[in-house]
């Protein structure tokens, strides 16, 4: 799976979890720019990503994500 395919899936999950009708993906997206992204929806987001890609992040990995691009890099490394 290439990076573009991963970002496509992550965008779908974000629309679903954050209840957005339309979202233009960029690596810089973060809780600062998406209102619906709070600490609780963040957890549901992470769990949905894990379920979709079939692995689990460590607490350290989760704590290291500051924007979506970090998450996508981590997914790419996990499923490589």
């Amino acid at each position: 799976m290439n990076r573009e395919e991963i970002t496509g899936i992550v965008t779908e999950i974000m629309c679903d979890v954050f209840d957005l009708d339309d979202l233009e993906y960029s690596d810089d997206l973060s809780a600062e720019v998406i209102d619906e992204w709070d600490s609780l929806s963040h957890i549901r987001f992470i769990v949905a990503v894990e379920k979709r890609f079939g692995f689990r992040f460590s607490s350290a990995e989760i704590e290291g994500f500051s924007k979506v691009g970090d998450l996508v890099d981590s997914i790419a490394a996990h499923i490589a």
Partner: peptide
Amino acid sequence: ARLWHDAKLPFAVE
């Protein structure tokens, strides 16, 4: 356990 440690959630999201 991870959700308990990270966010004090009492059980799995599922």
